[in-house]
Each structure stands twice: as structure tokens, then as C-alpha cells.
Amino acid sequence: MFSSLLALLAVTSIALASPLAPRTGAWCEGLGITYDTSYNFTLAALNTTLANANSTGAPLVPGQNGATDGAEYEVLSTWATYPYLDFPTMSLVDGVLTPNSANGVPSYDMQAIEGQPLQFFTTSESSSGPSAQIYCAIVDTDPDFQGLPLLAVNGEADNFALCMSGDESYAQNNVVWRPTADNNGMYLYETCYNVTLQLVGGSS
């Protein structure tokens, strides 16, 4: 009983110390202490296959993923393989994760598809888009290590990987949800390694 009370107090103190108010929407159900709205943060990919990995992962930015008339498509890429700040920060609003364009053009998230990179699109042709309420930030509740919040999609925070889009010198290292060898050439499966996605900074 006493140990349960101590654990509850530890979790509560972490929640109160967070600059963002804990919240549970349908997209955060079953994930513990969470929030689903934050502005102007960045993302980092922490390599979970390394025993001595840094506490903060590799910086991520929205990288190029093609274009059509009036719209551009993005994926989350490492800064090391796509060193451009077209989208300096990200925002999470009611479970919708979007890149913040440097020139103010609105972006929208797309449904996460198993075996594919997380995708976004940017367009000025419409004031709204088919945004997907599928993301949530999980507050670290371990009293011995108060790490950065982790991003979850479709209720999962531990099935992300970084995978190279090809073997060319300009290939991007992109975030993929539940990677698979059968991916229609979108990435090289043998290059994939598991990561968690950290939220760095942000404000309510």
C-alpha cells in the first residue's frame, strides 16, 4: 500500500513538473500520463539498439518526399541526411502532428501506414486538410530517469525505426513506422534500426 502511494506521488510530481498539462484524448488512451497539444518543439530519434546511447537522439526535420501540383510531401528525416530548415519546428494540436513551415504555408499530417514512413503534406491551395488525430506525447513516469516525452502514433511509441531511402549519396535516413522488408523500394530494410521519437522543447 505504502509503495503504491509513493509511486502515485512520483508520477503526480512528474506530471505537475511538466510544462504541459497532462491530457487524455481518444488518441492517447491507455498510454499513461500524456498530452496532445504542444507548440514549437523539435523531434529527435534516440537509437534504442545502443546500450550507451546519448540521452538526446539525432535531430529530425521534415525532409523532401516528392511533390504534385500545389502540394509538397514530407517525411521525418535526420538532419544529418537532410540539412535544411524548411520547417524549423513541429506542433501537436489535439493529436494532430504538423510541421511549421518557415514561410507560413500550412501543413497537414497523413494517416500512419504500417511499413511506411510517417508522412505530411504542405499546400496553400486549401485552408484545411485531412489531418489525422493519431499522435500523442507520453510523459516519462520513471522517478529514477525523467527523460524527454516520447511521441506515440496509433497508441505505439516503440515501433519506430530509421531507415535509409536508398544507397545514393543524397539518400535520406527516414522515420518508418513498423518497417518491413516488403516496402516497394521505399527504403532499404537492412539499414533500419529501432528508435524512439523524443519531443524537445515546446510550449502549451
Results as ranks from 00 to 15, higher is better:
191 T>V: 02
43 L>A: 02
190 E>W: 08
113 I>Q: 10
113 I>L: 13
133 Q>P: 11
41 F>N: 06
169 S>C: 07
69 D>N: 14
37 T>A: 01
16 L>T: 09
151 L>I: 12
78 T>N: 02
165 S>L: 00
99 P>T: 00
5 L>I: 15
167 D>S: 08
48 T>I: 10
2 F>W: 13
63 G>Y: 02
72 E>I: 12
37 T>F: 00
122 T>W: 06
52 N>C: 14
76 L>Y: 05
175 V>A: 04
21 A>D: 09
123 T>A: 00
190 E>V: 06
186 M>H: 08
103 N>Y: 09
65 N>W: 05
14 I>S: 05
184 N>K: 13
158 D>R: 13
109 D>E: 08
188 L>N: 14
201 G>A: 05
18 S>L: 02
88 P>H: 01
154 N>K: 11
96 V>S: 09
157 A>K: 09
87 F>H: 13
173 N>E: 07
31 L>S: 05
178 R>W: 10
43 L>Q: 03
117 P>W: 01
78 T>G: 05
118 L>S: 03
104 G>K: 00
199 L>Y: 04
104 G>Y: 00
61 V>D: 00
147 G>V: 11
112 A>H: 05
90 M>N: 06
90 M>D: 01
93 V>K: 10
180 T>S: 15
83 P>L: 01
3 S>V: 15
80 A>Q: 13
128 S>Q: 10
188 L>D: 06
86 D>M: 07
186 M>N: 10
21 A>F: 09
58 A>E: 15
54 N>C: 08
120 F>L: 00
189 Y>H: 12
75 V>K: 05
100 N>Y: 00
16 L>N: 11
114 E>M: 09
39 Y>Q: 12
177 W>V: 03
86 D>T: 12
38 S>T: 15
171 A>G: 10
182 D>H: 10
58 A>K: 15
147 G>D: 12
167 D>Q: 12
203 S>D: 11
14 I>L: 13
32 G>R: 02
157 A>W: 03
106 P>F: 03
41 F>W: 11
194 N>D: 15
143 P>E: 12
92 L>I: 09
96 V>L: 03
12 T>F: 12
113 I>C: 06
86 D>I: 11
30 G>T: 07
184 N>F: 14
140 D>K: 03
88 P>T: 03
96 V>P: 04
66 G>N: 05
18 S>T: 13
161 A>K: 05
187 Y>W: 09
16 L>C: 13
133 Q>C: 02
108 Y>E: 00
170 Y>I: 15
177 W>T: 04
31 L>V: 09
59 P>Y: 10
67 A>Y: 06
173 N>M: 03
134 I>D: 06
32 G>L: 02
173 N>Y: 03
121 F>P: 01
91 S>G: 07
200 V>Y: 04
66 G>I: 13
169 S>E: 13
25 G>D: 15
